[in-house]
Amino acid sequence: MSALLKIDGLNKSFGGIKATDDLSLEVAPGEIHAIIGPNGAGKTTLISQLSGMAKPDTGRILFKGRDITGQPAHKRAGLGITRSFQITSLVMELSVLDNIALSLQAREGHSFRFLKPARKVTHLREAGRALLARVGLEGKADMPTKALSHGEHRRMEVAIALGAGAELMLLDEPMAGLGFEESRDMVALLTGIKGQHTILLIEHDMDAVFALADRISVLVYGHIIATGTPEEIRANAAVQHAYLGEE
């Protein structure tokens, strides 16, 4: 099975501190691959480099066998990589449906279309509503985005990633700040899309990670110390020492 995403010897430092240290990783098509690690292990830095918001110092990133290391964020999105943000990142000024419709619009080539009102492009609006229904927000479509709760914003992030049609979804802590029930709903939501999209999941919530992930990689000080199935990771002594042992 060839990897959808292959990271090869990635390095990134900020002023002498190594945020990513000779990091190599493969993500197989269709899997949910979780990355766990203590705070400051460099998880978000990794996502930023994968989505093109930050440039690695050395190393290569291959997506479907193609070197994308030097590609800007908008190009990578066009290839099929979408990220969500740890801190909710939506266009607050626009409505809920507008946000989702924009992600669908992004799939249809350029948007230098000036004549027809975007809110009257039926197929975008209908597909947007369908996506909102899928994440359980069908009733909120026409509300201003800023009126929604944090948990609903997190769901919007997932809907946008789905809307963008990402083959690879980079989800940066989708459970961050969610309450118990909201987390459970999010796990159910992600379980529902499992297999249809490849997901690289960064998450602190261990219950969620062990419930969702096909494989788990453990990141410590910018370096992957172990990769394996949830059972293997649970059993791995080095991991228990470096990470799980702290809990």
Binding site: M53, A73, A77, T82, S89, M92, A106, I160
Partner: peptide
């Protein structure tokens, strides 16, 4: 509203 988001959408 959110330049970063728009760029990651493509």
């Amino acid at each position: 509203g959110n330049d970063e988001r728009m760029r990651t959408l493509g």
